[in-house]
Amino acid sequence: MINLFKIKGQKKDDAATANGKPAAKKQSPGELRLHKDIAELNLPKTTKISFPNGKDDLMNFETTIKPDEGYYVGGKFVFTFQVPPVYPHEPPKVKCKTKVYHPNIDLEGNVCLNILREDWKPVLNINTIVYGLNLLFSQPNDEDPLNHEAAAVLRDDPKKFEKNVQRAMAGGYVGETHFPRCV
C-alpha cells in the first residue's frame, strides 16, 4: 500500500505541503451538524435564542421561553445549552437558569425531558428540544417529577398549583423556597 521508497523521498514534499496550507483548527463534525441545526431553526414565537459568546461559538447558547398558554403565561425562563463535541451522538446538556416552581424541573435547574436523556436520538435536533421545553410549560407532567412537592400539588390540587406558580413567578415563597421574580 505505502511504498517505502516513496516515503524516503517524501520529506521534501512535506515541507512544501505545509507552505501551501497552514494547519488550521479543525471544525468537528458535531460543530458542523450544529451549524445546520441552528441555521434551520424554526423557533416557536414563544422562544428567543441568544449566543453569549458571539457568532462563532454555537456550542454554548441560551434560549428564553415566554409561554403563551398554561400555568406559566407571563413568565420568562432561560435555558442554557451546552453542546458536546460528539453531537448529535450525544444530546446537549440543557439546564434551566431561571429558578422555577415546576414538577419536571428541580431547583438546581435539572430538566426531566425524555429526549434530553434516555430517548435522545441523533435524528433529533435543537428544534425538537426547544419544542420539548415549550411542552413542559404548556403541559407540566406530574408523572415524571423532579420536584416532587410541586408534582404532588399539581396532581392533588391544580388550583393551589396555579396559585403557587403565580406566587413563584411574581417573586415569592412557596413553602420554604424563595423564587426570584421572572415575569
Binding site: 463534525p29 435539572n110 426531566c112 436523556r117 436520538k121 441523533p122 417529577p145 416532587h148
Partner: peptide, 17 residues
C-alpha cells in the same frame, strides 16, 4: 459513526423519584 449504539442513560425523574 452510526454503528455505535447510544449510551444507556437513565431518566432523571427515575433517579429522583
Amino acid at each position: 459513526i452510526w454503528l455505535f449504539p447510544p449510551q444507556v442513560k437513565f431518566p432523571l425523574c427515575t433517579l429522583a423519584e
